[in-house]
């Protein structure tokens, strides 16, 4: 049952990304990539093997629908792979069991920190592969920073709204 719900959420995030965020709201240069949010909030409950496979499927779905040829798949798998390290770095201040750092039980500040760094690293790999010109490092860094800030604002609003509930 839970698995079905998770698949439903993943499909919904893909649909929102492709048919709404990419299509109607924003221009090419500043586009929030919110479809990776389930990598933080849902995939952590699955075994490592499935985390990577699902992350690949998630990114590849966006690539197929957007004709972006593998850049989202590569960036999302990268994010899923480094997620345990990120969670360990940001999870030291949790209130509960110190042995199991957990996205959902972290304090809000640490969770936001994890989200921002995660978004930035994902966008960095994404734009790097997209432009394929690693020599323009400054522009790449700048574009990743602006876009991840833009994505982060949406997630921040959602987190604050969630925290108030």
């Amino acid at each position: 049952m839970k698995m079905l719900r998770d698949i439903g959420i993943l499909l919904l995030m893909i649909a929102i990304q492709v048919f709404f965020l990419n299509e109607y709201l924003f221009n090419h240069y500043l586009n929030p990539y919110l479809y990776i949010y389930p990598v933080f909030s849902i995939l952590i409950f699955y075994p490592r093997f499935w985390q990577l496979v699902i992350a690949f499927a998630l990114g590849a779905s966006i690539d197929i629908l957007e004709e972006s040829a593998g850049v989202h798949a590569a960036a999302t798998v990268f994010l899923a792979f480094i997620m345990p390290m990120l969670t360990r770095v940001f999870g030291t201040g949790r209130e509960d069991n110190p042995d199991v750092p957990h996205f959902k039980t972290m304090s809000l500040e640490r969770r936001l920190g994890l989200l921002f760094v995660g978004f930035f690293l994902h966008h960095f790999v994404l734009f790097g592969l997209e432009s394929f010109q690693w020599n323009q490092f400054g522009i790449l860094l700048q574009r990743s920073l602006y876009s991840s800030l833009f994505s982060f604002i949406f997630v921040l609003l959602y987190q604050l709204w969630n925290a108030r509930r």
Partner: peptide, 16 residues
């Protein structure tokens, strides 16, 4: 896990 990561990244990069 590391091997799976490398395999998936290789597929994606080949695609790019």
């Amino acid at each position: 896990i590391l091997l799976l990561f490398i395999l998936l990244e290789a597929i994606a990069v080949y695609w790019v």
